[in-house]
Design a protein around this nucleic acid. Structure first.
Lengths: 336, 336
DNA sequence: CGTTTTCGTGAAATCGCTTTCACGAAAACT
DNA sequence: AGTTTTCGTGAAAGCGATTTCACGAAAACG
């Protein structure tokens, strides 16, 4: 009576072939250590022989674990305009896949705490979540309270007990300034990102730490707040240069503003890097393909994703997880 | 005896509260039209009252439908370096989510037909798949044979019955050339992409169609094959200019090569666009943020994703699906 | 008005795996 | 040697939906 159809094999067949119970099959397939090794071998052999592959839905229903990790992206931020988050997601996906977990992409506005995404996450349809660049942490807090394992990419504002991964923004900024100082620059301007953003804040902190460390005096007026856009880099640089003709370097908190600054510098009749050196941040596609080549601080983007994934996996295993800060590297090209 | 715990409600509770059977609950929740309207109302009311949310795993096990669509990305192509695929994925995700489906991200090398990804797809753990930029179609063919609904993003080589979405590459190229001709350019060079790629091919076709249409003569030597890289744009442009000092426009099959070409033109002591006009393709982040602003052919990237998603959904509904070609738009900036 | 269809409905089987529980055998204790 | 623990194992009870099937009532038929 046994269906010899084309349908995929189940535990029943494996159990019969291996001469054990279905319970034992389950134990073997889930790596339970206390199964007699002969039986383990028998089951594995049967599995191979039948070309068995587990039905995830059934496993999920029975165990309550879906094998899915959500990558949550705030739509508002037009996150995918920049390849940055794509690369991070890529890194996440790779590590998860190696661990037989899958990546579920959740792109949606996160403003509303009762949005479909929020509901989805609370419904237990994923085993964990990785948030990319989160601002408001109301949702996160709630989810954390519900014991959904989660990891944040980027430093959260509040000192909540969220595990997070981030680049060493301050360290990267420090290295950039160090390099500028060592190449003889004295009057270094800084165009920050939107300072409500922790990354922008940290990059500024690193700048100031370096300035202090190297004992150079930078007047307050040389530090201005941009908004990450090319225009903001252009406008700020223009203003800075008109008021301070002796500026010999501008450090921008991202590449886009750096490119804007370069345009402003050139329009002011000065050359880069001879008159004014420029350093960006991110070592984005833009920096890599600009002309002249933009010197920039590179983040370990794939690493950011990979670490986040590893952290989630560790959490699922019930391990204690600590936040991680990944080092940045200064990539020297032509503008500094 | 009924557990009044915190666990989520199930059909059993809804059925009891609404005074109907579980079967009817299922019918209502799945939109079966032939249920008495009073009962529909009763069930809906109970659902609201209990704050019920369906358990996907259970539904998946029972129905064989997972509610998941895979977005398959070939890792080889470092697809996420360019925000293009991220944007497409974003578009897909949005449409799927509106239809209560989720996006499963599968990033992996697709060379091996027995790779984990391939297995995963064949295992029926997703209801359908959208392939981004696929080259070898061995895997696709096999999956199609297994009746996995799938849609390809980008025109496949073979004239297989795969449904696909693509931009009107030829049309976009045609428009670019038309614009060049209308602004008085006579000697237009073309740097193509890697011609094993269908998009590169189509962009060349469009170029040639326009050239023929407008009755201008372009010597063979003005059409060269690049490889999408900045260097290839630079090198080809340099060579072209040295041999043909009267070139007054270069149309490149992507933005990166266009930027390379601009550098070459400027190094040759000519100005853009006065001496030589340049048009790129993709209207990428790069084009939008270059200086001078790069004139480029924009694809409807989000539309590409959205259409692909809609096509998959239609296929799931059992509808006949036809491939779609989305129009491109010439974005005029400063280089032409 | 009797007979055949159609229609809405509920009971119950099912999807394939996980996990609790109980049990006998072996190991570790008095 | 007798008792208590530990250990590996299988039977069986879920997990929470979907779907088939059969049934009575209503509609349509002759």
């Amino acid at each position: 009576m046994a269906a010899k159809g084309k349908s995929r094999p189940t535990y029943a067949e494996i159990a019969k072939l291996a001469g054990v119970s279905e319970a034992t099959v389950s134990r073997v397939l889930n790596g339970d250590p206390k199964v007699d090794s002969d039986r383990v071998a028998a089951v594995n052999k049967a599995v191979d022989q039948l070309g068995y592959q587990k039905n995830r839905a059934a496993a999920a229903l029975a165990s309550g674990r879906t094998g899915l990790i959500a990558v949550v992206i705030d739509d508002d931020l037009s996150v995918f305009q920049d390849p940055f988050w794509g690369a991070v997601t890529n890194g996440i996906s790779k590590v998860l896949m190696e661990n037989e977990m899958q990546t579920l992409l959740l792109v949606a506005p996160l403003d509303n705490i009762d949005s479909p995404v929020a509901q989805y996450l609370q419904r237990g349809e994923v085993d964990g979540a990785i948030f990319l660049q989160l601002h408001k942490d109301t949702l996160i807090k709630r989810l954390a309270k519900q014991n959904l394992p989660l990891v944040v990419n980027g430093t959260p504002h509040t000192s909540n007990p969220f595990a997070y991964v981030d680049s060493d923004n301050a360290g990267g900024a420090f290295a950039a300034v160090k390099y500028l100082v060592e190449s003889g620059r004295k009057k270094i301007a800084k165009i920050t990102g939107d300072l409500t953003n922790t990354a922008a804040e940290q990059r500024l902190d690193g700048f100031q730490a370096a300035v202090t460390d190297f004992g150079i005096k930078i007047p307050r007026t040389l530090i201005v707040e941009g908004d990450w856009s090319r225009e903001s880099g252009y406008n700020h640089a223009k203003k800075l240069l008109s008021k301070n003709s002796d500026i010999d370097a501008i450090f921008c908190s991202n590449d886009l503003m750096a490119l804007g600054a370069i345009t402003a510098i050139q329009e002011a009749g000065k050359s880069v890097p001879e008159d004014v050196a420029v350093i960006g941040f991110d070592d984005s596609y833009l920096a890599q393909n600009s002309h002249p080549g933009l010197t920039s601080v590179r983040q370990d983007i794939a690493g950011l994703g990979a670490e986040a994934a590893k952290m989630i996996l560790a959490k699922l295993r019930g391990e204690e997880v600590h936040s991680e800060i990944l080092p940045c590297e200064l990539i020297i090209r032509e503008t500094a």
